[in-house]
Design a protein around this nucleic acid. Structure first.
Lengths: 298, 298
DNA sequence: GTTATGCTATTCATTATTGAATGGATAAAA
DNA sequence: TTTTATCCATTCAATAATGAATAGCATAAC
Protein backbone atom coordinates (compact mmCIF):
# COMPACT_ATOMS: atom_id res chain seq x y z
CA UNK A 1 0.00 0.00 0.00
CA UNK A 2 1.18 3.45 -0.78
CA UNK A 3 2.72 5.36 2.02
CA UNK A 4 0.70 8.49 1.38
CA UNK A 5 -2.47 6.49 1.39
CA UNK A 6 -1.69 4.81 4.66
CA UNK A 7 -0.26 7.73 6.53
CA UNK A 8 -2.57 10.52 5.46
CA UNK A 9 -4.96 11.15 8.28
CA UNK A 10 -8.55 10.71 7.15
CA UNK A 11 -9.72 13.40 9.52
CA UNK A 12 -7.93 15.86 7.25
CA UNK A 13 -10.32 14.89 4.47
CA UNK A 14 -13.19 15.40 6.88
CA UNK A 15 -11.91 18.93 7.44
CA UNK A 16 -11.37 19.41 3.73
CA UNK A 17 -14.94 18.50 2.97
CA UNK A 18 -16.31 20.75 5.67
CA UNK A 19 -14.34 23.71 4.36
CA UNK A 20 -15.34 22.90 0.80
CA UNK A 21 -18.99 22.73 1.80
CA UNK A 22 -19.15 25.80 3.99
CA UNK A 23 -16.69 27.88 2.01
CA UNK A 24 -14.85 29.10 5.06
CA UNK A 25 -12.66 27.87 7.87
CA UNK A 26 -14.93 29.44 10.44
CA UNK A 27 -18.03 27.80 9.01
CA UNK A 28 -16.31 24.45 8.85
CA UNK A 29 -15.13 24.89 12.42
CA UNK A 30 -18.69 25.52 13.58
CA UNK A 31 -19.88 22.45 11.75
CA UNK A 32 -17.22 20.16 13.09
CA UNK A 33 -17.18 21.61 16.56
CA UNK A 34 -13.55 22.61 16.22
CA UNK A 35 -11.81 25.94 16.04
CA UNK A 36 -10.90 27.99 13.03
CA UNK A 37 -7.12 27.75 13.55
CA UNK A 38 -7.42 23.98 13.68
CA UNK A 39 -9.24 23.86 10.38
CA UNK A 40 -6.70 26.22 8.85
CA UNK A 41 -3.89 23.95 9.96
CA UNK A 42 -5.65 20.86 8.69
CA UNK A 43 -6.04 22.33 5.25
CA UNK A 44 -2.46 23.48 5.18
CA UNK A 45 -1.21 20.09 6.31
CA UNK A 46 -3.30 18.40 3.65
CA UNK A 47 -2.01 20.70 0.95
CA UNK A 48 1.57 20.30 2.07
CA UNK A 49 1.35 16.53 2.33
CA UNK A 50 -0.28 16.10 -1.05
CA UNK A 51 1.79 18.93 -2.52
CA UNK A 52 -1.22 20.48 -4.19
CA UNK A 53 -3.25 23.67 -3.91
CA UNK A 54 -6.80 22.90 -2.87
CA UNK A 55 -8.22 26.31 -2.06
CA UNK A 56 -7.78 29.87 -3.13
CA UNK A 57 -7.51 32.05 -0.06
CA UNK A 58 -10.01 34.79 -0.42
CA UNK A 59 -10.74 37.50 2.10
CA UNK A 60 -14.30 36.25 2.33
CA UNK A 61 -13.35 32.64 2.70
CA UNK A 62 -11.86 29.64 0.96
CA UNK A 63 -12.71 28.79 -2.61
CA UNK A 64 -11.96 25.44 -4.19
CA UNK A 65 -9.43 25.24 -6.98
CA UNK A 66 -10.30 23.05 -9.98
CA UNK A 67 -8.22 20.28 -8.45
CA UNK A 68 -9.97 20.74 -5.13
CA UNK A 69 -13.30 20.43 -6.90
CA UNK A 70 -12.17 17.18 -8.41
CA UNK A 71 -11.19 15.88 -5.01
CA UNK A 72 -14.42 16.97 -3.42
CA UNK A 73 -16.43 14.27 -5.16
CA UNK A 74 -14.25 11.59 -3.68
CA UNK A 75 -14.49 13.18 -0.25
CA UNK A 76 -18.25 13.16 -0.58
CA UNK A 77 -18.17 9.49 -1.39
CA UNK A 78 -16.20 8.99 1.79
CA UNK A 79 -18.82 10.93 3.70
CA UNK A 80 -21.57 8.76 2.26
CA UNK A 81 -19.78 5.61 3.27
CA UNK A 82 -19.25 7.13 6.68
CA UNK A 83 -22.97 7.84 6.94
CA UNK A 84 -23.72 4.23 6.11
CA UNK A 85 -21.22 3.04 8.66
CA UNK A 86 -22.62 5.26 11.33
CA UNK A 87 -26.10 4.02 10.53
CA UNK A 88 -25.03 0.42 10.94
CA UNK A 89 -23.37 1.32 14.20
CA UNK A 90 -26.47 3.05 15.53
CA UNK A 91 -28.50 0.03 14.56
CA UNK A 92 -26.13 -2.15 16.52
CA UNK A 93 -26.58 -0.43 19.83
CA UNK A 94 -28.07 -2.92 22.20
CA UNK A 95 -29.08 -0.86 25.18
CA UNK A 96 -32.43 0.74 25.77
CA UNK A 97 -30.94 4.19 26.26
CA UNK A 98 -29.53 7.04 24.31
CA UNK A 99 -30.80 9.75 22.01
CA UNK A 100 -33.56 9.42 19.47
CA UNK A 101 -34.24 12.20 17.00
CA UNK A 102 -37.82 12.51 15.88
CA UNK A 103 -38.56 14.66 12.86
CA UNK A 104 -42.07 15.83 12.18
CA UNK A 105 -44.02 18.74 10.82
CA UNK A 106 -43.98 22.02 12.65
CA UNK A 107 -47.67 21.67 13.41
CA UNK A 108 -47.42 18.17 14.83
CA UNK A 109 -44.33 19.16 16.80
CA UNK A 110 -46.33 21.94 18.37
CA UNK A 111 -49.72 20.37 18.94
CA UNK A 112 -49.29 16.63 19.11
CA UNK A 113 -45.79 15.56 20.01
CA UNK A 114 -45.29 17.29 23.35
CA UNK A 115 -47.91 15.12 25.04
CA UNK A 116 -46.61 11.95 23.48
CA UNK A 117 -43.02 12.77 24.35
CA UNK A 118 -43.94 13.62 27.93
CA UNK A 119 -45.44 10.17 28.29
CA UNK A 120 -42.43 8.59 26.64
CA UNK A 121 -40.11 10.23 29.11
CA UNK A 122 -42.08 8.70 31.95
CA UNK A 123 -42.01 5.22 30.50
CA UNK A 124 -38.43 5.35 29.22
CA UNK A 125 -36.51 7.87 31.26
CA UNK A 126 -33.20 6.66 29.80
CA UNK A 127 -34.17 7.60 26.29
CA UNK A 128 -33.58 11.22 25.47
CA UNK A 129 -35.66 12.71 22.69
CA UNK A 130 -34.59 15.30 20.14
CA UNK A 131 -37.61 16.81 18.45
CA UNK A 132 -36.84 18.21 15.01
CA UNK A 133 -39.74 20.32 13.71
CA UNK A 134 -39.38 20.78 10.00
CA UNK A 135 -41.70 20.93 7.03
CA UNK A 136 -39.01 19.97 4.56
CA UNK A 137 -38.25 16.30 4.40
CA UNK A 138 -35.30 15.04 6.37
CA UNK A 139 -32.59 12.84 5.02
CA UNK A 140 -32.76 9.80 7.23
CA UNK A 141 -29.71 8.38 5.45
CA UNK A 142 -27.59 11.08 6.96
CA UNK A 143 -29.33 10.65 10.27
CA UNK A 144 -30.83 14.08 10.33
CA UNK A 145 -33.46 12.14 12.20
CA UNK A 146 -33.90 8.58 13.46
CA UNK A 147 -37.65 8.43 13.10
CA UNK A 148 -39.84 10.66 11.00
CA UNK A 149 -43.56 11.24 11.37
CA UNK A 150 -44.74 12.39 7.99
CA UNK A 151 -47.99 13.31 6.27
CA UNK A 152 -46.98 11.67 3.03
CA UNK A 153 -45.61 8.36 1.97
CA UNK A 154 -41.82 8.39 2.30
CA UNK A 155 -39.98 7.65 -0.91
CA UNK A 156 -36.44 7.11 0.25
CA UNK A 157 -35.03 3.64 -0.24
CA UNK A 158 -34.00 1.28 2.54
CA UNK A 159 -36.73 2.66 4.75
CA UNK A 160 -39.10 0.88 7.05
CA UNK A 161 -42.48 2.56 6.99
CA UNK A 162 -45.86 2.15 8.60
CA UNK A 163 -49.10 3.84 7.70
CA UNK A 164 -50.74 4.64 11.05
CA UNK A 165 -53.99 5.94 9.66
CA UNK A 166 -55.37 9.21 8.40
CA UNK A 167 -55.96 12.58 9.89
CA UNK A 168 -59.22 14.27 8.98
CA UNK A 169 -59.25 17.97 8.19
CA UNK A 170 -61.89 20.55 8.75
CA UNK A 171 -62.51 24.20 8.16
CA UNK A 172 -62.62 26.38 11.22
CA UNK A 173 -63.09 29.95 12.28
CA UNK A 174 -62.86 31.76 15.57
CA UNK A 175 -66.03 32.90 17.31
CA UNK A 176 -64.78 36.49 17.06
CA UNK A 177 -64.51 36.20 13.29
CA UNK A 178 -67.93 34.62 12.90
CA UNK A 179 -69.52 37.30 15.07
CA UNK A 180 -68.06 39.87 12.73
CA UNK A 181 -68.57 38.25 9.33
CA UNK A 182 -71.10 35.49 9.86
CA UNK A 183 -70.66 31.91 8.66
CA UNK A 184 -70.21 31.14 4.99
CA UNK A 185 -73.09 29.46 3.17
CA UNK A 186 -71.79 27.05 0.62
CA UNK A 187 -68.68 27.04 -1.50
CA UNK A 188 -69.51 30.15 -3.53
CA UNK A 189 -69.93 32.20 -0.40
CA UNK A 190 -66.25 31.66 0.44
CA UNK A 191 -65.41 34.52 -1.87
CA UNK A 192 -67.04 36.93 0.51
CA UNK A 193 -64.85 35.70 3.34
CA UNK A 194 -61.28 36.02 4.44
CA UNK A 195 -59.37 32.80 4.14
CA UNK A 196 -55.97 32.25 5.72
CA UNK A 197 -53.72 30.42 3.26
CA UNK A 198 -50.22 29.18 2.73
CA UNK A 199 -47.61 31.36 1.19
CA UNK A 200 -45.27 29.39 -1.06
CA UNK A 201 -47.01 26.08 -0.43
CA UNK A 202 -49.93 25.67 -2.81
CA UNK A 203 -51.51 22.55 -1.25
CA UNK A 204 -54.75 24.33 -0.37
CA UNK A 205 -55.19 25.84 -3.83
CA UNK A 206 -54.57 22.56 -5.57
CA UNK A 207 -56.95 20.69 -3.31
CA UNK A 208 -59.71 23.24 -3.77
CA UNK A 209 -59.34 23.17 -7.52
CA UNK A 210 -59.46 19.40 -7.41
CA UNK A 211 -62.79 19.81 -5.59
CA UNK A 212 -64.06 21.95 -8.44
CA UNK A 213 -63.83 25.18 -6.49
CA UNK A 214 -62.13 28.01 -8.36
CA UNK A 215 -59.21 29.15 -6.26
CA UNK A 216 -56.16 31.31 -6.62
CA UNK A 217 -53.46 32.72 -4.41
CA UNK A 218 -55.23 36.08 -4.33
CA UNK A 219 -58.22 34.74 -2.42
CA UNK A 220 -56.11 34.54 0.71
CA UNK A 221 -56.28 37.55 2.92
CA UNK A 222 -53.42 36.38 5.09
CA UNK A 223 -50.79 33.86 4.22
CA UNK A 224 -48.28 31.93 6.27
CA UNK A 225 -46.19 28.84 5.59
CA UNK A 226 -45.52 27.87 9.14
CA UNK A 227 -48.54 25.82 10.07
CA UNK A 228 -48.38 26.53 13.76
CA UNK A 229 -48.34 30.24 13.15
CA UNK A 230 -50.99 29.69 10.49
CA UNK A 231 -53.31 28.21 13.03
CA UNK A 232 -52.66 31.04 15.47
CA UNK A 233 -53.67 33.44 12.71
CA UNK A 234 -56.94 31.59 12.29
CA UNK A 235 -57.47 31.51 16.04
CA UNK A 236 -56.85 35.24 16.21
CA UNK A 237 -59.74 35.79 13.81
CA UNK A 238 -57.87 36.55 10.60
CA UNK A 239 -60.27 34.39 8.67
CA UNK A 240 -61.34 30.89 7.85
CA UNK A 241 -58.68 28.23 7.95
CA UNK A 242 -58.04 24.53 7.80
CA UNK A 243 -56.90 22.35 10.62
CA UNK A 244 -56.81 18.79 11.81
CA UNK A 245 -60.27 18.22 13.31
CA UNK A 246 -58.93 16.29 16.28
CA UNK A 247 -56.93 19.31 17.36
CA UNK A 248 -59.27 22.10 16.45
CA UNK A 249 -62.37 20.60 18.01
CA UNK A 250 -60.72 20.70 21.43
CA UNK A 251 -60.42 24.45 21.18
CA UNK A 252 -63.58 26.06 22.64
CA UNK A 253 -62.89 29.30 20.82
CA UNK A 254 -63.04 27.64 17.43
CA UNK A 255 -66.11 26.73 15.43
CA UNK A 256 -66.14 24.14 12.70
CA UNK A 257 -67.66 25.26 9.42
CA UNK A 258 -69.67 22.41 7.91
CA UNK A 259 -68.79 21.93 4.27
CA UNK A 260 -70.92 20.36 1.56
CA UNK A 261 -67.87 18.65 0.07
CA UNK A 262 -65.42 16.34 1.84
CA UNK A 263 -61.90 17.56 2.60
CA UNK A 264 -58.97 15.28 1.80
CA UNK A 265 -57.45 13.21 4.54
CA UNK A 266 -53.79 13.34 5.52
CA UNK A 267 -52.06 9.97 5.80
CA UNK A 268 -49.69 9.56 8.74
CA UNK A 269 -46.55 7.58 8.09
CA UNK A 270 -43.95 6.46 10.55
CA UNK A 271 -40.50 6.01 9.01
CA UNK A 272 -37.08 4.86 10.06
CA UNK A 273 -34.03 3.53 8.36
CA UNK A 274 -33.82 -0.19 7.81
CA UNK A 275 -30.50 -0.35 9.65
CA UNK A 276 -32.00 1.23 12.76
CA UNK A 277 -35.06 -0.97 12.97
CA UNK A 278 -33.48 -3.49 15.32
CA UNK A 279 -31.99 -1.00 17.71
CA UNK A 280 -33.96 -1.51 20.93
CA UNK A 281 -34.34 2.13 21.73
CA UNK A 282 -35.45 3.05 18.22
CA UNK A 283 -37.89 0.16 18.21
CA UNK A 284 -39.23 1.25 21.58
CA UNK A 285 -39.77 4.86 20.52
CA UNK A 286 -41.38 3.62 17.32
CA UNK A 287 -43.79 1.55 19.36
CA UNK A 288 -44.62 4.43 21.69
CA UNK A 289 -45.17 6.75 18.74
CA UNK A 290 -47.41 4.18 17.14
CA UNK A 291 -49.56 3.97 20.25
CA UNK A 292 -49.35 7.66 21.10
CA UNK A 293 -50.43 8.83 17.69
CA UNK A 294 -53.41 6.49 17.53
CA UNK A 295 -55.89 8.94 19.08
CA UNK A 296 -55.02 11.46 16.38
CA UNK A 297 -55.53 9.19 13.41
CA UNK A 298 -59.02 7.95 14.14
CA UNK B 1 -26.54 16.80 10.32
CA UNK B 2 -26.28 14.33 13.10
CA UNK B 3 -23.85 15.19 15.82
CA UNK B 4 -22.28 11.75 15.89
CA UNK B 5 -21.69 11.92 12.18
CA UNK B 6 -20.07 15.29 12.33
CA UNK B 7 -18.00 14.82 15.42
CA UNK B 8 -16.76 11.28 14.99
CA UNK B 9 -13.19 11.48 13.85
CA UNK B 10 -12.71 9.75 10.52
CA UNK B 11 -9.21 8.69 11.48
CA UNK B 12 -10.85 6.32 13.96
CA UNK B 13 -12.42 4.52 11.02
CA UNK B 14 -9.04 4.37 9.40
CA UNK B 15 -7.74 2.66 12.50
CA UNK B 16 -10.78 0.40 12.64
CA UNK B 17 -10.18 -0.78 9.10
CA UNK B 18 -6.50 -1.38 9.71
CA UNK B 19 -7.25 -3.50 12.77
CA UNK B 20 -10.01 -5.35 10.93
CA UNK B 21 -7.66 -6.08 8.04
CA UNK B 22 -4.61 -7.11 10.01
CA UNK B 23 -6.45 -8.77 12.85
CA UNK B 24 -4.29 -7.18 15.49
CA UNK B 25 -3.50 -3.84 17.05
CA UNK B 26 0.20 -4.37 16.48
CA UNK B 27 -0.26 -5.23 12.84
CA UNK B 28 -2.48 -2.24 12.30
CA UNK B 29 0.06 -0.06 14.07
CA UNK B 30 2.78 -1.25 11.72
CA UNK B 31 0.62 -0.56 8.73
CA UNK B 32 -0.39 2.92 9.80
CA UNK B 33 2.96 3.88 11.21
CA UNK B 34 1.49 4.36 14.65
CA UNK B 35 1.94 2.53 17.92
CA UNK B 36 -0.05 -0.32 19.35
CA UNK B 37 -1.39 1.64 22.36
CA UNK B 38 -2.65 4.32 20.00
CA UNK B 39 -4.57 1.82 17.94
CA UNK B 40 -5.97 0.26 21.07
CA UNK B 41 -7.21 3.61 22.25
CA UNK B 42 -8.71 4.44 18.88
CA UNK B 43 -10.73 1.26 18.83
CA UNK B 44 -11.89 1.80 22.37
CA UNK B 45 -12.87 5.39 21.63
CA UNK B 46 -14.77 4.27 18.58
CA UNK B 47 -16.60 1.58 20.48
CA UNK B 48 -17.44 3.93 23.33
CA UNK B 49 -18.62 6.69 21.06
CA UNK B 50 -20.80 4.44 18.96
CA UNK B 51 -21.76 2.37 21.98
CA UNK B 52 -21.17 -0.90 20.17
CA UNK B 53 -18.78 -3.82 20.37
CA UNK B 54 -16.70 -4.07 17.25
CA UNK B 55 -14.06 -6.64 18.17
CA UNK B 56 -13.71 -9.65 20.35
CA UNK B 57 -10.47 -9.39 22.29
CA UNK B 58 -8.59 -12.58 21.78
CA UNK B 59 -5.17 -13.40 23.14
CA UNK B 60 -3.87 -13.69 19.59
CA UNK B 61 -5.47 -10.53 18.35
CA UNK B 62 -8.70 -8.78 17.58
CA UNK B 63 -11.55 -10.51 15.84
CA UNK B 64 -14.49 -8.69 14.29
CA UNK B 65 -17.93 -9.13 15.78
CA UNK B 66 -20.83 -9.60 13.36
CA UNK B 67 -21.61 -5.91 13.72
CA UNK B 68 -18.00 -5.04 13.09
CA UNK B 69 -18.06 -7.14 9.96
CA UNK B 70 -21.08 -5.21 8.78
CA UNK B 71 -19.30 -1.94 9.38
CA UNK B 72 -16.17 -3.10 7.64
CA UNK B 73 -17.76 -2.93 4.20
CA UNK B 74 -18.58 0.71 4.68
CA UNK B 75 -15.09 1.40 5.94
CA UNK B 76 -13.72 -0.24 2.82
CA UNK B 77 -15.87 1.97 0.68
CA UNK B 78 -14.35 4.91 2.50
CA UNK B 79 -10.89 3.56 1.78
CA UNK B 80 -11.72 3.21 -1.89
CA UNK B 81 -12.93 6.78 -2.06
CA UNK B 82 -9.80 7.81 -0.24
CA UNK B 83 -7.70 5.97 -2.80
CA UNK B 84 -9.47 7.83 -5.59
CA UNK B 85 -8.95 11.10 -3.84
CA UNK B 86 -5.30 10.43 -3.28
CA UNK B 87 -4.93 9.51 -6.93
CA UNK B 88 -6.48 12.77 -8.04
CA UNK B 89 -4.20 14.63 -5.66
CA UNK B 90 -1.12 12.87 -6.97
CA UNK B 91 -2.20 13.71 -10.49
CA UNK B 92 -2.49 17.33 -9.52
CA UNK B 93 1.07 17.77 -8.34
CA UNK B 94 2.68 20.31 -10.57
CA UNK B 95 6.34 20.08 -9.73
CA UNK B 96 8.92 17.92 -11.41
CA UNK B 97 10.01 16.30 -8.18
CA UNK B 98 8.91 13.68 -5.72
CA UNK B 99 8.64 9.93 -5.60
CA UNK B 100 7.66 7.62 -8.40
CA UNK B 101 7.00 3.95 -7.79
CA UNK B 102 7.79 1.66 -10.68
CA UNK B 103 6.49 -1.87 -10.55
CA UNK B 104 7.94 -4.50 -12.80
CA UNK B 105 8.80 -8.17 -12.94
CA UNK B 106 11.52 -9.51 -10.74
CA UNK B 107 13.64 -10.30 -13.78
CA UNK B 108 13.32 -6.86 -15.34
CA UNK B 109 13.93 -5.25 -11.97
CA UNK B 110 17.18 -7.18 -11.73
CA UNK B 111 18.55 -7.09 -15.25
CA UNK B 112 17.03 -4.10 -17.00
CA UNK B 113 15.78 -1.42 -14.65
CA UNK B 114 18.96 -0.59 -12.72
CA UNK B 115 20.66 0.88 -15.77
CA UNK B 116 17.59 2.82 -16.79
CA UNK B 117 17.04 4.15 -13.31
CA UNK B 118 20.67 5.18 -12.97
CA UNK B 119 20.29 7.29 -16.07
CA UNK B 120 17.02 8.72 -14.84
CA UNK B 121 18.65 9.83 -11.63
CA UNK B 122 21.24 11.75 -13.62
CA UNK B 123 18.69 13.47 -15.78
CA UNK B 124 16.13 14.09 -13.04
CA UNK B 125 17.92 14.17 -9.71
CA UNK B 126 14.82 15.56 -7.97
CA UNK B 127 12.74 12.53 -8.81
CA UNK B 128 13.22 9.67 -6.41
CA UNK B 129 12.45 6.20 -7.70
CA UNK B 130 10.90 3.32 -5.77
CA UNK B 131 11.44 0.08 -7.62
CA UNK B 132 8.85 -2.56 -6.78
CA UNK B 133 9.89 -5.97 -8.13
CA UNK B 134 6.88 -8.24 -8.20
CA UNK B 135 5.54 -10.93 -10.48
CA UNK B 136 1.97 -10.53 -9.29
CA UNK B 137 0.12 -7.64 -10.77
CA UNK B 138 -0.07 -4.47 -8.78
CA UNK B 139 -3.20 -2.55 -8.07
CA UNK B 140 -2.49 0.82 -9.55
CA UNK B 141 -5.82 2.06 -8.23
CA UNK B 142 -4.49 1.83 -4.70
CA UNK B 143 -1.21 3.29 -5.83
CA UNK B 144 0.82 0.22 -5.07
CA UNK B 145 2.76 1.63 -7.99
CA UNK B 146 2.60 4.74 -10.15
CA UNK B 147 3.89 3.14 -13.32
CA UNK B 148 4.00 -0.53 -14.16
CA UNK B 149 6.15 -2.22 -16.76
CA UNK B 150 4.35 -5.43 -17.62
CA UNK B 151 4.75 -8.35 -20.01
CA UNK B 152 1.05 -8.56 -20.67
CA UNK B 153 -1.71 -6.19 -21.62
CA UNK B 154 -3.09 -4.54 -18.49
CA UNK B 155 -6.77 -5.03 -17.94
CA UNK B 156 -7.59 -2.61 -15.20
CA UNK B 157 -9.95 0.20 -16.10
CA UNK B 158 -9.05 3.89 -16.18
CA UNK B 159 -5.53 3.02 -17.23
CA UNK B 160 -3.31 4.66 -19.78
CA UNK B 161 -1.21 2.05 -21.57
CA UNK B 162 1.42 1.92 -24.26
CA UNK B 163 2.75 -1.11 -26.05
CA UNK B 164 6.49 -0.46 -26.33
CA UNK B 165 7.28 -3.48 -28.47
CA UNK B 166 8.15 -7.10 -27.92
CA UNK B 167 10.93 -8.94 -26.23
CA UNK B 168 12.28 -11.97 -28.03
CA UNK B 169 13.06 -15.12 -26.09
CA UNK B 170 15.69 -17.73 -26.67
CA UNK B 171 16.87 -20.96 -25.17
CA UNK B 172 20.24 -20.89 -23.50
CA UNK B 173 22.66 -23.08 -21.65
CA UNK B 174 25.94 -22.46 -19.90
CA UNK B 175 29.18 -23.57 -21.51
CA UNK B 176 29.81 -25.82 -18.51
CA UNK B 177 26.51 -27.63 -19.08
CA UNK B 178 27.09 -28.04 -22.81
CA UNK B 179 30.58 -29.41 -22.20
CA UNK B 180 29.02 -32.00 -19.96
CA UNK B 181 25.86 -32.94 -21.86
CA UNK B 182 26.34 -31.64 -25.38
CA UNK B 183 23.83 -29.53 -27.26
CA UNK B 184 20.35 -30.85 -27.98
CA UNK B 185 19.53 -31.75 -31.56
CA UNK B 186 15.94 -30.91 -32.35
CA UNK B 187 12.85 -30.87 -30.20
CA UNK B 188 12.74 -34.61 -29.43
CA UNK B 189 16.24 -34.51 -28.08
CA UNK B 190 15.09 -32.18 -25.27
CA UNK B 191 13.93 -35.23 -23.35
CA UNK B 192 17.51 -36.27 -22.86
CA UNK B 193 18.38 -32.95 -21.35
CA UNK B 194 17.83 -31.15 -18.12
CA UNK B 195 15.50 -28.20 -18.45
CA UNK B 196 15.08 -25.58 -15.76
CA UNK B 197 11.41 -24.73 -15.39
CA UNK B 198 8.97 -22.74 -13.36
CA UNK B 199 7.39 -24.15 -10.27
CA UNK B 200 3.77 -23.03 -9.90
CA UNK B 201 3.80 -20.94 -13.04
CA UNK B 202 2.99 -23.14 -16.06
CA UNK B 203 3.74 -20.62 -18.83
CA UNK B 204 6.56 -22.72 -20.29
CA UNK B 205 4.52 -25.91 -20.38
CA UNK B 206 1.56 -24.24 -22.00
CA UNK B 207 3.73 -22.57 -24.60
CA UNK B 208 5.55 -25.80 -25.46
CA UNK B 209 2.30 -27.66 -25.83
CA UNK B 210 1.00 -24.90 -28.02
CA UNK B 211 4.07 -25.53 -30.20
CA UNK B 212 3.12 -29.17 -30.45
CA UNK B 213 5.88 -30.36 -28.16
CA UNK B 214 4.68 -32.77 -25.50
CA UNK B 215 5.57 -31.28 -22.13
CA UNK B 216 4.75 -31.84 -18.50
CA UNK B 217 5.91 -30.55 -15.18
CA UNK B 218 8.02 -33.67 -14.68
CA UNK B 219 10.38 -32.85 -17.51
CA UNK B 220 11.94 -30.10 -15.41
CA UNK B 221 14.96 -31.12 -13.45
CA UNK B 222 15.03 -27.93 -11.45
CA UNK B 223 12.21 -25.52 -10.90
CA UNK B 224 12.03 -21.96 -9.65
CA UNK B 225 9.37 -19.28 -9.83
CA UNK B 226 11.60 -16.33 -9.24
CA UNK B 227 12.88 -15.52 -12.68
CA UNK B 228 16.08 -13.91 -11.53
CA UNK B 229 17.00 -16.94 -9.49
CA UNK B 230 15.79 -19.08 -12.38
CA UNK B 231 18.32 -17.48 -14.67
CA UNK B 232 21.07 -17.93 -12.12
CA UNK B 233 20.21 -21.64 -12.03
CA UNK B 234 20.59 -21.82 -15.79
CA UNK B 235 23.86 -19.87 -15.63
CA UNK B 236 25.15 -22.26 -13.00
CA UNK B 237 24.67 -25.13 -15.39
CA UNK B 238 21.54 -26.72 -14.00
CA UNK B 239 20.20 -27.20 -17.49
CA UNK B 240 18.66 -25.54 -20.47
CA UNK B 241 16.55 -22.48 -19.83
CA UNK B 242 14.74 -19.63 -21.44
CA UNK B 243 15.69 -16.00 -21.30
CA UNK B 244 15.25 -12.73 -23.06
CA UNK B 245 17.77 -12.84 -25.89
CA UNK B 246 18.84 -9.25 -25.41
CA UNK B 247 20.02 -10.05 -21.91
CA UNK B 248 21.36 -13.51 -22.35
CA UNK B 249 23.43 -12.78 -25.45
CA UNK B 250 25.50 -10.29 -23.50
CA UNK B 251 26.63 -13.03 -21.17
CA UNK B 252 29.80 -14.63 -22.53
CA UNK B 253 29.27 -17.74 -20.45
CA UNK B 254 25.92 -18.49 -22.08
CA UNK B 255 25.32 -20.15 -25.40
CA UNK B 256 22.12 -19.80 -27.36
CA UNK B 257 20.56 -23.05 -28.50
CA UNK B 258 19.13 -22.62 -31.99
CA UNK B 259 15.60 -23.95 -32.20
CA UNK B 260 13.73 -25.15 -35.24
CA UNK B 261 10.53 -23.57 -34.00
CA UNK B 262 10.01 -19.91 -33.02
CA UNK B 263 9.55 -18.98 -29.39
CA UNK B 264 6.74 -16.63 -28.46
CA UNK B 265 7.48 -12.97 -27.94
CA UNK B 266 6.72 -11.08 -24.77
CA UNK B 267 4.89 -7.80 -25.24
CA UNK B 268 6.07 -4.92 -23.09
CA UNK B 269 3.39 -2.61 -21.80
CA UNK B 270 3.82 0.64 -19.93
CA UNK B 271 0.87 1.46 -17.67
CA UNK B 272 -0.20 4.25 -15.41
CA UNK B 273 -3.45 5.50 -13.99
CA UNK B 274 -5.40 7.98 -16.03
CA UNK B 275 -5.42 10.44 -13.14
CA UNK B 276 -1.64 10.43 -12.93
CA UNK B 277 -0.98 10.94 -16.61
CA UNK B 278 -0.73 14.72 -16.38
CA UNK B 279 1.52 14.84 -13.37
CA UNK B 280 4.79 16.23 -14.73
CA UNK B 281 7.03 13.88 -12.81
CA UNK B 282 5.01 10.80 -13.78
CA UNK B 283 4.96 11.92 -17.38
CA UNK B 284 8.70 12.48 -17.27
CA UNK B 285 9.45 9.05 -15.84
CA UNK B 286 7.09 7.50 -18.35
CA UNK B 287 9.01 9.20 -21.15
CA UNK B 288 12.38 8.08 -19.77
CA UNK B 289 11.12 4.52 -19.40
CA UNK B 290 9.81 4.59 -22.93
CA UNK B 291 13.20 5.65 -24.25
CA UNK B 292 15.22 3.53 -21.83
CA UNK B 293 13.38 0.32 -22.60
CA UNK B 294 13.65 0.76 -26.35
CA UNK B 295 16.95 -1.16 -26.71
CA UNK B 296 15.33 -4.16 -25.02
CA UNK B 297 12.26 -4.37 -27.22
CA UNK B 298 13.89 -4.46 -30.63
C1' DG C 1 -15.24 58.42 3.83
C1' DT C 2 -16.43 55.80 7.90
C1' DT C 3 -18.04 51.99 10.40
C1' DA C 4 -19.43 47.30 10.98
C1' DT C 5 -18.98 42.68 9.83
C1' DG C 6 -17.00 38.44 8.69
C1' DC C 7 -13.17 36.34 7.44
C1' DT C 8 -8.01 34.57 7.88
C1' DA C 9 -3.30 34.27 10.03
C1' DT C 10 -0.49 34.11 14.17
C1' DT C 11 0.79 33.50 18.86
C1' DC C 12 1.11 31.10 23.08
C1' DA C 13 -0.53 28.69 27.18
C1' DT C 14 -3.20 24.62 27.79
C1' DT C 15 -4.76 20.28 26.84
C1' DA C 16 -4.96 15.94 24.68
C1' DT C 17 -2.57 12.52 22.30
C1' DT C 18 1.17 9.80 21.61
C1' DG C 19 4.70 6.07 22.10
C1' DA C 20 8.54 3.67 24.75
C1' DA C 21 8.69 0.66 28.30
C1' DT C 22 6.83 -2.84 31.15
C1' DG C 23 4.15 -6.78 32.67
C1' DG C 24 1.10 -10.47 31.82
C1' DA C 25 -1.09 -13.86 29.07
C1' DT C 26 -1.38 -17.20 25.35
C1' DA C 27 -0.05 -20.26 21.76
C1' DA C 28 3.45 -22.48 19.13
C1' DA C 29 8.08 -24.63 19.02
C1' DA C 30 11.91 -27.04 21.14
C1' DT D 1 8.15 -28.88 30.34
C1' DT D 2 10.61 -24.92 28.98
C1' DT D 3 11.49 -21.62 25.66
C1' DT D 4 10.25 -18.35 22.37
C1' DA D 5 7.47 -15.30 20.03
C1' DT D 6 3.35 -12.59 19.77
C1' DC D 7 -0.05 -10.29 21.34
C1' DC D 8 -2.71 -6.87 24.53
C1' DA D 9 -3.28 -3.52 28.59
C1' DT D 10 -1.28 0.05 31.38
C1' DT D 11 1.72 3.71 32.84
C1' DC D 12 3.97 8.04 32.43
C1' DA D 13 7.08 11.38 30.36
C1' DA D 14 7.36 13.74 26.01
C1' DT D 15 5.22 15.55 22.26
C1' DA D 16 1.87 17.36 19.22
C1' DA D 17 -2.53 19.43 18.55
C1' DT D 18 -5.73 22.56 20.14
C1' DG D 19 -8.38 26.93 21.01
C1' DA D 20 -8.77 31.70 23.08
C1' DA D 21 -7.17 35.95 22.03
C1' DT D 22 -5.47 39.21 18.88
C1' DA D 23 -4.29 41.64 14.82
C1' DG D 24 -4.93 42.43 10.04
C1' DC D 25 -7.79 42.40 5.71
C1' DA D 26 -11.30 42.95 2.53
C1' DT D 27 -16.01 43.80 1.61
C1' DA D 28 -20.53 45.82 2.27
C1' DA D 29 -23.49 49.16 4.20
C1' DC D 30 -24.27 53.64 5.66
Amino acid sequence: MDKTLASLDWSLIQSFLAVADTGSLSGAARRLGASQPTLGRHIRTLENTLKVELFQRHARGFQLTPLGREMRGHAERMAEAMAGLSLVAAGGETRLEGDVRIATSVFMAHHVMPGIIAQMRQQEPDIRIDLVPSDSSENLLFREADIAVRMYRPEQLDMVTKHLGDISLGMFASRAYLDRKGAPRGAEDLHHHDVVGYDSNDDIIREMRAMGIPASREMFAVRCDNQSAYWELVRAGCGLGFCQTNIARKDPEMVEIPLAFPLPHLPVWLTTHEALRHSPRIARVWELLDVGLRPFVS
